[in-house]
């Protein structure tokens, strides 16, 4: 018998601190598998955010830097400008990327910064215990939207992939989900393509991953996946939002 599925080398052999059923672990593994398959673990430099995935610096075997809340794209920019031949990526949640770090995100995209962003959208602040995120859906109950998010007073959820797809500097943007085996496999393809975009020097790439937070959503891991499908997917449609990789190739 041959081993057909194993822990990727780029994923440190440590216990992940995430809650049971949290899909962060799946995305961590997908990134590691892509680093392995592209043979880039040795030249990758990752940037960890503030939020649930803050400990990401302990989870990938590549060099890592931990950034201030929302600043990962700026930190990654600094690294990439010093080491253009390395592969630089950030891993950020929705509060980090789409709220406190919106400016850094948008301008990294505008500059066509040749970095890759893995963006976890689970519609809530996890680490701090379930507050309203920029991506929290209308009507969604959180600790800071106890009566359900009311767009009239609390604003609308932000669709980052759609927004960034309008920037000239973004080369590749796709929204994926990790709610099913099929979607996990598609997510991996997208992550691989995002890293390949950087390797080819095409510019800014981002994969937005719809993800769950069973603990703060107050659901079982299985119910959380169902909630994601029924509520998040209609608001945040999956798909490729920008792909200039082919047109850049022609230039």
């Amino acid at each position: 018998m041959q081993q057909v599925f194993k822990r990727p080398d780029a994923l440190c052999d440590v216990n992940l601190h995430y809650c049971p059923g949290c899909t962060h672990g799946i995305v961590h593994r997908l990134v590691a598998e892509v680093l392995d398959e592209l043979g880039i673990e040795g030249k990758a430099i990752g940037v960890a955010p503030v939020g649930c995935s803050v400990f990401a610096y302990d989870y990938w075997n590549c060099d890592m830097q931990q950034a201030a809340h929302g600043r990962a794209p700026a930190v990654a920019t600094g690294i990439k400008r010093v080491r253009p031949d390395n592969v630089v990526f950030t891993y950020q949640g929705d509060g980090d990327l789409a709220s406190i770090g919106t400016a850094e995100t948008v301008h990294a995209a505008m500059r066509g910064e040749n970095i890759t962003i893995i963006f976890i959208n689970n519609a809530i602040y996890g680490m701090t215990g379930g507050q309203m995120a920029p991506t929290t859906l209308p009507g969604q109950v959180t600790q800071t939207s106890p009566y359900g998010r009311d767009p009239k007073t609390q604003g609308y959820p932000i669709r980052m992939s759609e927004m960034l797809s309008k920037t000239d500097g973004a080369a590749y943007i796709e929204r994926v989900s990790v709610d099913s085996v099929k979607n996990i496999n598609s997510a991996k393809k997208a992550i691989k393509k995002a890293f390949q975009t950087q390797l080819d020097g095409k510019g800014f790439s981002m994969v937005e991953v719809l993800s769950t937070c069973p603990t703060n959503w107050g659901k079982s891991p299985k119910e959380a996946l169902e909630w994601l499908r029924e509520n998040m997917m209609p608001y945040y449609p999956l798909g490729v939002y920008t792909d200039k990789t082919a047109e850049n190739k022609a230039e």
Binding site: Q2, F5, Y18, G25, I26, I184
Partner: peptide, 19 residues
């Protein structure tokens, strides 16, 4: 079946699959 769907879904890399 060795389809590895369980391993693909596992958030904690608990599962190894042999075929």
């Amino acid at each position: 079946l060795g389809c590895a769907m369980c391993a693909t879904m596992c958030p904690d890399c608990v599962i190894e699959v042999f075929k």
